[in-house]
C-alpha cells in the first residue's frame, strides 16, 4: 500500500458531520513528483477532503499517510512540519504583516525551518519566482487578488513542502490571470513538485494533471487520466445531470 513512490496515501477515509456523510470511504494515492486533480461538482466534499488531509478536520474513519507517516491523527501544525503545505479556497492573508513577512510566515516553524537572513533571502527568491517584485515591504491589502494568491503560493512553498495542496487556487481569476496562474503551476510541476489541486477550471485540469479523482456527494466516482475521467459517463452525469431528465 505504501509504495516508496507514494507521497500521499488516502485509505478509506470517511468524514461525518452529525448525520451527514461529507466524505464517504475515499481511497487514492498521490505518487511523488506528480500532479493529482481532485474534481467534482460543488458540495461534493472536495474541500472537506483537503481539510482532512491538512489536519484542519479529523477523519471519522480511515487513514492518511504522508511518505509512510500516518498523519490522520496528528494536529494541523504537526502535519505542516512534516512537509504538507496548503493554500485556502478564499485567500487568507495576514493583514498586519508586509508581503515579505507573509511569505516568511511559512518558513519559521515549517517543514524546512529557517530564520534570519536565510529565511529572508529564500522568501524574496520565492516572491520573484511567483512573479512579485518590488513589493516586499508593501501591506498585503494593497495587492490585487491574483497577487495575494501569489503571496499565498509563495508562503506555501517557502518551507519546501513534500506535498502541496492547492484549494481552488485558480478560482476568481480573469482569463489573462488564469493563463499566468496555469503557467506558474506548470513551472512547479516541471520542477518535480508533488501537488494536489482542487479545481473547477477544466483547462487547468487537462493541461496540468497526471491523474484525476472525481468526487460526487462525498464518494469517489472515477479515477484516471484527465481524458479518461472527463469522458466518463458517470462523471458527465454528475456535472450535467441525466441527459433525459
Amino acid at each position: 500500500m505504501n509504495s516508496p513512490s507514494a507521497a500521499l496515501t488516502i485509505g478509506g477515509v470517511t468524514k461525518r458531520f452529525g448525520g451527514l456523510v461529507a466524505v464517504n470511504n475515499i481511497s487514492f494515492t498521490l505518487p511523488a513528483n506528480k500532479v493529482l486533480g481532485l474534481i467534482g461538482p460543488n458540495g461534493s466534499g472536495k474541500t472537506t477532503m483537503i481539510n482532512l488531509i491538512s489536519g484542519a478536520l479529523k477523519p471519522s474513519a480511515g487513514a492518511i499517510h504522508l511518505h509512510g507517516d500516518s498523519i490522520s491523527d496528528r494536529s494541523a501544525s504537526e502535519i505542516a512540519t512534516l512537509g504538507l503545505s496548503r493554500t485556502f479556497q478564499i485567500v487568507r492573508m495576514l493583514p498586519g504583516l508586509t508581503v515579505l513577512e507573509n511569505v516568511q510566515a511559512g518558513g519559521v516553524f515549517g517543514h524546512r525551518r529557517m530564520w534570519g537572513t536565510e529565511l529572508r533571502e529564500h522568501s524574496r527568491a520565492l516572491l520573484q519566482k511567483v512573479g512579485l517584485q518590488g513589493v516586499d515591504d508593501t501591506v498585503v491589502s494593497a495587492l490585487t487578488y491574483i497577487d495575494q494568491k501569489r503571496v499565498e503560493l509563495a508562503r506555501a512553498l517557502v518551507a519546501d513542502p513534500k506535498v502541496l495542496l492547492l484549494d481552488e487556487w485558480l478560482a476568481g481569476l480573469n482569463p489573462t490571470e488564469l493563463k499566468t496562474g496555469i503557467a506558474l503551476i506548470e513551472q512547479l510541476r516541471t520542477e518535480g513538485r508533488t501537488i494536489m489541486i482542487v479545481e473547477h477550471v477544466m483547462d487547468a485540469i487537462r493541461s496540468l494533471c497526471d491523474t484525476c479523482v472525481v468526487m460526487n456527494s462525498g464518494a469517489k466516482i472515477a479515477e484516471g487520466t484527465p481524458r479518461e475521467v472527463l469522458s466518463d459517463a458517470e462523471v458527465i452525469r454528475a456535472y450535467l445531470g441525466d441527459i433525459d431528465a
Binding site: 501544525s77 510566515a105 508562503r155
Partner: peptide, 21 residues
C-alpha cells in the same frame, strides 16, 4: 515573537504554517 504576530493575524494560517499555537 514572529509566531505570535502570525497568530494574532490569523490563527488558522498560523496552524497551517506549522506553528503550535
Amino acid at each position: 515573537g514572529f509566531a505570535l504576530r502570525i497568530i494574532g493575524n490569523d490563527e488558522v494560517v498560523a496552524v497551517h504554517c506549522g506553528i503550535n499555537t
